[in-house]
């Protein structure tokens, strides 16, 4: 598992990377009431704004952590945005991406580094 400074987690299983937000991020955002996901098939570039999350407090963007193609999205969190607060690092993943530059993953933190990062 890898972590970004934008509080995303990346789980690489057999070359497909599942992306979500960390429990820390979900707690900071507060109750999430709206999620907009990219369409399957979208080619994204690292740092593209591809997801919008709205909490009771404000809107925030989630950036594409790596280059690649969106191969699956989690419609369940669009239907029930509150799932992101309930299980951000499990059931409430956001999208799956097939990386075109897999080595971009190497730049991200491991779990211990992320724990240090959030203090």
């Amino acid at each position: 598992m890898k972590y970004t400074e934008e509080h995303e987690w990346l789980d690489d299983v057999d070359g497909i990377v599942t992306v979500g937000i960390t429990a820390h991020a979900a707690e900071q955002l507060g109750d999430i009431v709206f999620v907009e996901l990219p369409e399957v098939g979208t080619e994204v570039t690292k740092d593209d704004e591809i997801v919008v999350i709205e909490s009771v407090k404000a809107a925030s963007d989630i950036l594409a952590p790596i280059d690649g193609e969106i191969v699956e999205i989690n419609e369940a969190i669009v239907e029930e945005p509150g799932k992101v607060n309930d299980d951000p690092e499990g059931e409430a993943w956001f999208f799956r991406i097939k990386p075109s530059e897999p080595e971009q993953m190497d730049d991200y933190m491991d779990e211990n580094e992320y724990k240090d990062f959030i203090g």
Partner: peptide, 10 residues
């Protein structure tokens, strides 16, 4: 206080 541990929604 903008919120307590219960959270805005609850």
């Amino acid at each position: 206080p903008v919120q307590y541990p219960l959270g805005v929604m609850k």
